[in-house]
Structure formats: C-alpha cells, structure tokens
Design a protein around this nucleic acid. Structure first.
Lengths: 343, 343
DNA sequence: ATTAGCACTCTAACAGGAGGAGTGCTAATA
DNA sequence: TATTAGCACTCCTCCTGTTAGAGTGCTAAT
C-alpha cells in the first residue's frame, strides 16, 4: 500500500513531530535521518503523502504535520518495537504499582497516577462497575437507633455501604432475617440481575419492606445513573506543561472535560474488550472538543473477566509507543493483582 | 484612621477592580461613582492611599490597583452589607444543598460543587477528620475465607471499612469477641486517643492479635499521615475562565496545587475555629505560588463541635462579599444537616 | 529517477510611530 | 485652605511596515 521509502519518510515525520511540535521540513528530515536522498526528493515524497492524506501543511510554506490518518498508519504499520529503556521504565512502574495496597479503588488510583507521571499525559481508569459484579453477601445492622447500615459485599472484593433511615423501626433480629434471606437468594448472582429482579418483584407484590428494599437498591444502582463517579482522571498538571496546551482555550475545554467526567466516560466506553491495547486517534473519537486528543487504553481483568478500562489520554501528537507499553504493563499488572486477590 | 472620603475612594477602586481587572483611573471613578469631586482631587486622594500602602500602580501612567492591604482594609472596614439578590442567591444554594443526600462525604462534595458554581471560584472543603470523631462501634467479620472486613462506626455518622488478610485464620466467633471487646472498651472515646492508647499497649504487652490490631489501626489513622485524601476541591473549570488566569503559568501553578492538594491542605489548616467566616488575602497566606489567591473560609460543625473547614479560593481580586455570604450560608446549612443527623 | 536551482509564499520577529489613558505638578479659584 | 483646571510628561497598546528565514513547488539538468 505504501512503498517502504514513503513509510520511512512518514515515520520520520511522525517521530520528529512527536519529539517537538514544529512542522517538519524536507531539509530537516534529510539532516536528522540518514536517507541518502536530497531534500527535493523528500519534498516529492512528502507531497505524495499529503495527497494520500497522511500529512498536511499548516500553511503554504511550512513543513508537514501528520494527520490523524497519518498517525493511524504509523501506529498500525510502522510502530517500532519498544526500546530497551522503555522496557525498563515500564518495569519500574510495575514495581511501584505492585507495592500499592488497599482495595481496588486505591490500586486503580495509584495506577492512574503512575501511568500519568511516567507518560506525562493524563491517566484515566474506570472503576469496576458494581453492576457487573456478583453478590457475595448482604449485611444489615442497626446504627444509632434510627438508622440502618446496609453493606454489600461482592465476590470481586469490593464493599459498599450506605446509611438509610430505619423507618419501620426494625430490630436487629428482623434485619438479620431480611439480610440472610436476601443473601441466600442472591449470592453468586450478577448485581444487575438482582437489581432488575428486585424491581420486578416490588411491582408484582407489595411487601411491607418495599421502602427498605427500594433504598437498598440505591446501593446496587449507584453509579449507573449518574455515570461519572466511577472514573478516575489524574495528571492535569502534566498535561498543562505540554506545548500542545499553551493555548488557553484548549485548557478550558480539557478542564471542563475532566471536571464533568461525562466526556471521558464516553471515551472510555468506546474501549471494548478485544484482548489488546486500543488506540483512538484524534477525531476518531467523535467527541466534540476532544478532536485533538488521543487515547491509548485497554481493559483490565479480574478473574479473567474484563471489569474496567485503564488508559492514557494525551494530544494526538503523543508518544504512542511509550503509551502503549505503559498501559499494557499497568493493565497486566492489575490483572495479576486483582486476579490473585479473588483466587 | 482613614477619613470617610478616602474610604469611599478606596471602596470605589476595589469594587470597580473586582468588577473588571483593569487599573482604575481617577476620571473613571468620578464618572462611575457620584463623588462631586473632580478627577484631580480623586488623584490626590489616590496618591495618599498609595502612600499609605492601600493602592499601587502597575506602571507610571496607569490607574490604581488595590494592594493586599487595600483588600484587607476593604474587607474589614468598608464591606457593604450583602445585596438583596445576594441573599436570594445564597438561599437558592441552601435549598439545593438541603436536597443532597448520602453521607457526610457526599454532602460536602455537593457543597463544594455548589459554592463553586455560584461563586465561579474554587470550592474547597476538608472532610471531618476521623481522628477527631468518637467511636460508636467496631465490627469485624469474615470475608471470603482468607480475609477480614473491619468496620469502624463513628458517632458522627461516618463509616470506614477495610479489608485485611486473616493471617491467624480467626473464626467469626473470635472476631466477634475481639470486636465487642474493643467496642466495649472504647465506645464514646476519641479516635485519636484510642489510636495512641492501642499503640502504647501493643508496645507494653505482646498479644497474639498484635498484627490484627496493627492493621486495624490503619483505619483509625487513615488520612493523618498522607494528608490530602481528605480534602475536596472543585471548580477548576470556573477558575480558568477568569481573566486573572489568562496567563498559562498561573494555571500551571494552580493545577499543581489542586492535584497535589498539600498546598490546599496547608491553606485550610490556617482556618481556626473562631465563630465566623475568615478571609485570607493574597500573600497573607505565606504559601509560595499562591500569593495572588485569596481564601474565604469557615469551619462547619457537627453537634456544635467544629469538625472541618469549608471555603472558597479565588484570585485576590475576588468578590469577597459574595464569597463570604455563600460560605457562611453553606456552612450554616451544613451545621444543620450534620447536627440534625447526630441528634 | 533524482537533484540543483530558483522564484515564490508565508510566518515570526523587530522597529517605529500614533493614539490614548492616566498621572503629577503648578497655578488659579472659591 | 481645599479644590480644580490646565498642561506637560510617561508609559502602554496597537498598528504598520519591513526583514530574515524557512520551506515549498516547479523546471530543467543530470
């Protein structure tokens, strides 16, 4: 599809543009990379690459800049194998990550922090969605006379609790009965299923515990309606230091996306599980305002079941190779940490 | 200390500079505010105010700008009583806040979000520090064979849980004994005290449960060493839209402060409880990099005991009146919501 | 097929100048 | 004595024109 000489030129342009965000000219390419060709020839090749849509010019007499399509080709066909020191870097990160303790949330927090500080881009992750977990146990207990604490234990090792008013003045004995009934009936079942089956039941047969059940449901459903609480974003301070964000308007857009999180959620939702690191380049994401951002992400697993997404978001001019290696290393590390937990 | 005419001029300068960040000139003051004086007279007064340290000039032929000292005088001596629509605004906010549900964390999250969006500055808050709470109950239960869930219930209505490995393979029976022993001994006591007394005991007498106790301690102490997890900061997207942050370097400094949180913690620590909204202006905070930021904050209470801080951070050129009213309204609203809870 | 040469284009950077806003001072005024 | 009008002066901002440089595309020569 593209002769190897053109590929090498495209490679040179992308690499050097990633290195520093100045349009790259023909002369520069001949100087920096050993082509054995004159600038004029490079110019011709570049013109061809532009016709094909891989490169573009900011203005008539400027050098070339890769298009999203150019990056795409670069990522898919001519990405070099990771360098030695890249491997060392990801190993370092993995080691740091392995020392992280706490529950899943803490580990993920640390993971995003690490991939952000190693890549100098934004680290993002979606927490395991409760609704995809399976129930391990439900506990209810009295708390301070007028309230009940409901606790939800999942097989995935997360615990959620919620305080609800004890409207029926239930005794601890009653609570024990209710919770062991629920536990017995639903243990091992998918939270999402439980939720819908409870809702159905409540419609069919009115019980005196409806109010209690309804409030309990809130734990099950948390995060499913107001998506955004279950996504972590770290590293804004890294990103503002990039020359790509010297423009204040870009910062505004980004800060809005980060704070509202909905946009990022939409992005993460695009990552499906297909056993590998996925790359979404620039306008491919089809999200307004994020057309000059790319994402490198993959799913992470828990007992061999994909439960969430981990990735890096940066400018289209990002170091894809670096990002891919880091994300992959972090995700596989998570797999081990989480998988090992629930064994 | 300052005759009323000078005060009015200072007031005019501050107000109009808050309104828009251009140095304010003598002519402008006479036009906008009815002084019955000529620009020349205003100039003389301004020169006096400059000599006194309340105003300053960016350059020779520019208008005047308030100094930190100027703002200080303005805040303490000549702040006008809140306008009508200000009161309506804070009422609106209060209503919105009252509908917030969930535990303390959720409520505070909503509170910072609200004061940020109403003020267009940064909303900040410190969560109630667990170590200042009193213990209500401790529960321990087996979880998935090889682990234990430790739950800490405070009188203040917060619950913390932690999963720790069950190294001694304790039975639920043992756990029940241990937790009821701990509960019995420490209920009603201050968490901080409990922590230190447990540590002391562990040193004095080795018990077979030391490892368990030590891990349990981690819950008590959480947030005390790595301060930063217990502070909320919201509204970066509001702040980047201010003309004060059109400079990219200021954004960098701020984003760093927000992400690391330590700086903000230091700032919040300066707020002591003395029954009222406190204002820290510009370089008064003595924190590097934040010399052009001000904070308006106050403590919020739980059962009449101050447990945390809530405030607004913005540029020195912030609308103090507005901020004070909002912070006060929000804090008093929190008082009610939390105080009512634990009655 | 490649390359040297050249005219052309566009930008970034600098310098100079006009306009304007605002001051401080002095002298006149109420 | 306090206020004000007048005026010279300063400094910033904005606009303009110019220049240097980088890079291109094209053509003709190799």
């Amino acid at each position: 599809m593209l002769d190897s000489r053109s590929q090498r030129v495209l490679w040179a342009v992308v690499e050097s543009y990633i290195d520093s965000p100045d349009p790259v000219g023909s002369r520069y390419v001949t100087k920096k990379y050993e082509f054995g060709l004159s600038p004029a020839t490079i110019r011709n090749i570049m013109a061809d690459l532009e016709d094909l849509g891989f490169l573009t010019q900011p203005h008539t007499s400027a050098g070339r800049v890769p298009t999203d399509m150019g990056y795409r080709f670069y990522v898919e066909n001519i990405l070099a194998p990771p360098e030695e020191n890249m491997a060392r870097m990801s190993e370092q990160m993995t080691n740091r990550l392995l020392t992280a303790g706490g529950d899943v949330d803490d580990i993920l927090q640390e993971a995003t922090r690490l991939i952000s500080s190693f890549s100098h881009y934004l680290g993002v992750a979606s927490l395991p969605r409760t609704e995809n977990s399976t129930l391990h146990k439900i506990e209810m207990m009295n708390y301070k006379d007028d309230r009940i604490v409901v606790m939800l234990f999942t097989n995935e090792g997360t615990i959620k609790h919620k305080i609800i008013p004890n409207e029926l003045s239930l005794e601890q004995r009653d609570l024990g009965r209710i919770s062991s009934y629920l536990s017995e009936r639903f243990t091992g079942k998918n939270i999402k299923e439980i939720r819908s089956s409870l809702v159905r039941e409540m419609k069919e047969q009115k019980s005196e515990f409806d109010a209690l059940i309804e409030r309990t449901l809130a734990i099950f459903g948390e995060g499913s309606d107001n998506a955004g609480d279950d996504v972590l974003i770290t590293g804004f301070k890294e990103v503002v230091n990039l020359p790509d964000f010297s423009d204040i308007d870009k910062i505004k857009i980004l800060s809005e996306a980060i704070e509202d999180k909905h946009t990022i959620v939409k992005l993460l939702d695009k990552i499906v599980d297909n056993d590998g690191v996925q790359v979404i380049i620039g306008s491919e994401n089809r999200i307004e305002g994020l057309s000059n951002m790319s994402m490198v992400a993959t799913t992470y697993r828990e007992s061999n079941r994909p439960v969430g997404v981990l990735g890096i978001i940066g400018p289209t001019r990002m170091n894809y190779q670096n990002a891919i290696v880091l994300v992959d290393a972090a995700a596989r590390c998570l797999d081990r940490m989480l998988g090992g937990n629930s064994s």
